[in-house]
Write a protein that binds this DNA or RNA. Structure first.
Lengths: 119, 119
DNA sequence: ACGGTTCATCGACGTTCATCGATGTCTCGG
DNA sequence: CCGAGACATCGATGAACGTCGATGAACCGT
């Protein structure tokens, strides 16, 4: 019931009537974003040098314990919002911009009349 | 600590380092969206005839009890995602597209280098 | 003025979730 | 080969949340 990265995820919310399944799918993805700690992690990684950040450099600026940071990072990776690459004994993270665009598209406002321009 | 509609809400997450306050603010707004019932309510109102929907027509298609629907609608209004207008004994709801755009802007990907083009 | 309809509020219950300390696993340097 | 550092996993705990039935408040037709 989680927001796996493989999902393409939904048409725009305002474009057509969302089914319960699609709604749960999109809600699962949004739920991962809807947390201060995870938003700041996303922001920390995005603004990090070279666009990637080591987990060891995220614990202190986030002000949470190491297990908590690890937990949030796992959720972000599972949702496809971050990618993890383990190099040596460090784990490096990057943001996945396409995944953010996915959410943006799902939230496109006033899309109710933009489906078929006219035959 | 809620997502009041008056908030302008944050710079893009990927553009600059999010402070804890801003993160909580944006998270509060996203938390309202991150629920299947509320997403479907938003979708129901958006795709309704004339762009507005009566609360009485939302209970049955949502498949939840009337108090639950009322509760979710209140949260959406408080977050500024819906507007409520009481006419007679019915309550009519409309989506607020600007509020959706706010979230879209906050989630703009790859905005790390788009702040100041060059002086 | 009364009864029915619409909607919000209240109180309660079960689930989900963020957080932590303790522990386990892996990798490297000496 | 052993110890230290980095990270994930486990188990527990307290708070937040979605849901419902019951109740309350407002607004009409008759």
């Amino acid at each position: 019931m989680e927001a796996h990265a493989t999902e393409v995820c939904c048409q725009p919310v305002t474009a057509s009537l969302l089914a319960e399944d699609e709604a749960e799918e999109l809600a699962g993805l949004l739920k991962v974003l809807a947390d201060p700690a995870r938003l700041r992690l996303l922001s920390l990684v995005a603004t990090a040098e070279a666009g990637e950040a080591c987990a060891c450099d995220l614990v202190e600026p986030l002000g949470r314990s190491q297990p908590t940071v690890s937990h949030h990072l796992s959720l972000l990776v599972e949702a496809g919002l971050l990618s993890r690459e383990k190099r040596g004994r460090w784990a490096w993270y990057r943001v996945v911009p396409e995944r953010l665009s996915t959410i943006q598209d799902a939230l496109a406002p006033g899309a109710a009349f933009s489906s078929s321009p006219r035959p």
